[in-house]
Design a protein around this nucleic acid. Structure first.
Lengths: 348, 348
DNA sequence: CATCCGGGTCGAAACGATTCGGGAGAGGTA
DNA sequence: TACCTCTCCCGAATCGTTTCGACCCGGATG
């Protein structure tokens, strides 16, 4: 059939050395002394024969396959997956590794099976990812192997994790609004339950930055993070007589709902109301006007997680990845246009 | 350190048979006759010792690792990835396999590297996925291994592929509109270049079903498949004096643009204009009113592709996965409300 | 002149399965 | 009894590396 594989033995013979020596050369071990001349000869021959070491047989000894497992509670949701996986893939590639994917569906039994299955295949370590930032408890099996958490924090300490810097993002958001000249009528849209880290941290950041400037938000619109809910909530806010000048939406879906409600009420973004949001999903670019949003660093999360896993100097620590503001058209100076309801002093 | 692995030898010894016999029992080979009594004894012992065969060592002989490679030109785009990967994952699990992911970035050299890298890890076959339905030319390396194409067709014949049934989806769309009572003012929104299979097929299906009912579309709105472009194009259509009653948008992003233009023009969905779309992305559910859309069978594509790959009876053939209509609120009978511009005979 | 030392190599034993080619024993047949 | 045929099982080679524990040899040391 196909030509038989070139083995290390072939290389050794062709280079006139023993298999042992060839092995040392190929794996580049320095603890064993090999004459430079021999070394280069072996390498030369290996190249000529286009030798590729058989990873599987190597694994049999080392129990490692240059593979990392990326396991997640839910792969699919929200397009989060895509970019993170790409980042992870890229980092894995940098380290000559390959990525095996797994999904636990949040089921501990499934997770156990999966982990074993991956261990059987010689994965060298795991990235455990959550689809929304939260605290997780990692199973014992998992903890007894190299592990990096992505987008989640361990209850138990000692596990390195990579998460978005939500609090700083909150500050960024608030500052952006302040810089645009907003001081009044700033509303926070979206519920912030304390156990949803992203929500909680964003809020803290926002309030801190506003407070630092001596500004107090005009209010909070409590709503689930979905367009329909948000739309209703914002509509209710408006019909209650409030005159929002700026809406900080806790994510883009919420912002979509806000857009809908504003449009319905005849309010124009950004002339009447500025809208600022988080996540920078595709949606942000599709809305009209484009939604200024603070991007989740999906790609970077994946990349850093795998990189951390595969770099020996891993220190158990929380790595916060900065979130960057993507300016589009939804934030402007307040009062550029007269409100439909009452006049207001105009800036410029 | 950790307790040494239970090997097949351990099982054999404990069961009082040879390693050979134990192996035959464990792998369930029938060509070698093993007494039922012996068989069950070995199985029993294996269970007691909670024996897990070492896949890596097995691979060394068989060159297979119960692994399939899913390689794609671009993992991330459009959240397509997520569901497809989930489907692939599920199917792989059903076959006791595991999924390795790779991304070629459309680069042939990267692809070659990747394929080799996966082969080194003993993948048993490949699923080659494209992020939008199109013709691809598969490399020779790839073709010389078990392979299933997902969301793309091979130029060369003989490679099985799994794609959405776009043409039937087109028919479904048209029929849905017809059933709602639409016969006039039906516009097709979105360009349909012949090399973009989805576009082309959808259009053919739509036109065929309309023609079968003796209906001719009122026109075509040529626009890129992006919200902004679509918005402008639809706005132009309206300002040109046309009075669309139904818009068949070639995907949800196009529909978003259409929504924006309609809303701008003071037209209400679905009272004034029905909107029907394709893809059933998240967006469809977020819009207001909910967008009736024909779903891309992402999950099913992934599942079927891997299933086909791992089922021996693979026949080289194109498998078309049905796309199902997701009804929301964007289609209604025409003329339920008087047009803002002119009155029209009302149905019911 | 024996010893030691350290640089440079290598033989052979793992690693844990699969699989080829028998082979022993029980029973049947001539 | 001699030979054959099943049935059930096993020894040993093999997959391609890694790696432990030598070994050889020339020069420095005492």
């Amino acid at each position: 059939m196909s030509t038989p594989r070139t083995t290390l033995m072939d290389v050794a013979v062709a280079a006139g050395v023993s298999r042992t020596t060839a092995s040392f050369v190929m794996t580049g071990r320095t603890d064993m002394r090999i004459a430079e001349q021999t070394r280069s000869r072996v390498l030369q021959v290996a190249r000529e024969l286009s030798y590729r070491p058989n990873l599987l047989s190597r694994s049999l000894r080392t129990n490692l396959t240059q593979t990392v497992g990326l396991i997640s509670d839910a792969i699919a949701t929200q397009g989060f997956a895509g970019e993170s996986i790409r980042g992870a893939l890229a980092a894995a590639l940098d380290h000559q590794h390959v990525l095996i994917l797994g999904e636990t569906e949040g089921d501990a039994e499934v997770e156990k099976q999966l982990v074993n299955s991956l261990l059987d295949r010689g994965v060298g370590g795991f990235v455990y990812a959550s689809m929304y930032t939260r605290q997780v408890s990692v199973s014992k099996v998992l903890r007894s192997h190299p592990l990096v958490l992505m987008n989640c924090l361990a209850r138990a300490k000692g596990v390195p994790s990579v998460i978005p810097d939500e609090r700083e993002a909150g500050r960024t958001a608030a500052r952006h609004l302040l810089e645009a000249g907003h001081t009044d009528g700033i509303y926070l849209v979206g519920e912030t339950p304390p156990d949803v880290i992203a929500a909680h941290e964003r809020r803290i950041g926002i309030e801190a930055a506003l407070a630092a400037a001596g500004v107090e938000p005009a209010g909070t619109v409590d709503t689930l993070w979905w367009p329909r809910a948000s739309r209703n909530a914002v509509a209710k806010l408006i019909s209650s007589g409030a005159e929002p000048k700026a809406l900080i939406c806790l994510n883009d879906r919420v912002a979509l709902g806000a857009y809908q409600a504003l449009s319905q009420a005849g309010l124009i973004v950004p002339e009447d109301v500025s809208v600022l949001s988080f996540d920078d999903s595709d949606l942000a670019d599709w809305l009209d006007p484009g939604l200024t949003s603070i991007a989740l660093p999906h790609l970077e999360l994946g990349r850093r997680a795998v990189d951390l896993l595969l770099s020996p100097e891993t220190t158990p620590q929380v790595h916060r990845i900065p979130m960057t503001l993507m300016e589009r058209g939804s934030v402007a100076a307040p009062g550029r246009r007269k409100s439909t309801r009452r006049t207001r002093h105009t800036i410029r």
